[in-house]
Design a protein around this nucleic acid. Structure first.
Lengths: 185, 185
DNA sequence: TCTAATATGTACCGATCTGTACATATTGCA
DNA sequence: TGCAATATGTACAGATCGGTACATATTAGA
């Protein structure tokens, strides 16, 4: 199996879905923008929804991998790592193609609770929250799960605030708030 | 001008767009679900986008009015009012038809920055933030704007967390974090 | 009751939607 | 070189998209 074409499709589709939305992006436009024929697309994925699922899986992988690498570079102190999460945000927000969280968008566009796309989006958030919880536990927080949930609120809030553009540097605000919450925990 | 039919349309369309999304909801389905003829719809609004804008304006009005009323009932203490904001969330989340924030959804589905729909969505968030800032100033916070932005992060985060369902009671988490942040401010 | 405004039903337009059929190129490998 | 897998182009199906034309029905006010 040489999956290069398939991977190329998933990678390009991910960017387009992320930028333009899921329902607003038709298969014909994917053909035009990726240069990959529609026949090939439907040979690799039996439906648009399956392709979307693949892009979400890829996004989850690359996102969490990047986060883990960034945290590893932040040094061994667990408390430093907890704060470094917000530097990941700063990095992300500085990217030219930033336009919010793909999983929040997916959950918005696929409101049916059992829809595989909605399930996949939730799963990503669950995994990120789990990562935070492990960090909080390592940092010796009394209520690690609670602290993780609170920091998660700040992260989600910063993503939304940045996306909607009503706040200049929500990552800095979030980090400042996080410092207070970590101290209090 | 007897705008009853128009208002009825906006009210019903708001619920449908909120529940099912904007691109995923066609005018034909609006006709089927509202019982209002397509001719009438396009007589009141010259395009689907204009109808969407009207639903967003309505949602902003009703949402902020409800919030102000709730805050007014919370008592005169500004610090109490700041915390009461999170009781508004608790109320909202308990509603059976809760499915996230309509403005976040709108911003997600209309990524072009200048799109009137995106502008309208941002405007709602700006107004809410402004309300928070006034409360924070009345509560005597040193950096009222900064505290307001931090509380806004918690609010957005709680909405997203509740919507995506990876957290049981994000409103309670947000309120607990808010108490800490308000004390520290 | 007459009139003017408003609402309806139906049928349609061209464009786009997801998805398929099928015949032709292109590629990787032995 | 030759074979098999993979990719392509075109053309299309059936449904739905936003939006309009137009003739009829309902309503409200003088």
């Amino acid at each position: 199996m040489r999956p290069s074409k398939r991977d190329e499709l998933v990678q390009k589709a991910e960017k387009i879905f992320y930028r333009d939305g899921f329902h607003a992006t038709g298969m014909d436009r994917l053909v035009a923008e990726t240069g990959i024929s529609k026949t090939t697309m439907f040979k690799h994925f039996h439906s648009k929804d399956e392709l979307i699922l693949a892009t979400l899986r890829r996004k989850d992988e690359t996102f969490r991998n990047r986060m883990h690498k960034h945290l590893a570079e932040a040094g061994g102190e667990p408390r430093e790592q907890l704060l470094a999460v917000f530097d990941v945000l700063t990095d992300w927000f500085a990217q030219a193609d930033f336009c919010g969280c793909m999983f929040i968008k997916a959950a918005s566009e696929y409101p049916v609770h059992d829809d595989p796309i909605a399930v996949q989006a939730r799963e990503h958030k669950r995994l990120v929250l789990l990562d935070l919880q492990q960090l909080a536990r390592a940092a010796g927080a009394g209520d690690a799960a609670g602290l993780a949930r609170q920091l998660m609120l700040l992260i989600e809030g910063a993503i939304v605030a940045k996306h909607m553009g009503y706040s200049e540097a929500p990552d800095a605000d979030a980090k400042a708030a996080a410092e207070v919450l970590i101290m209090a925990a």
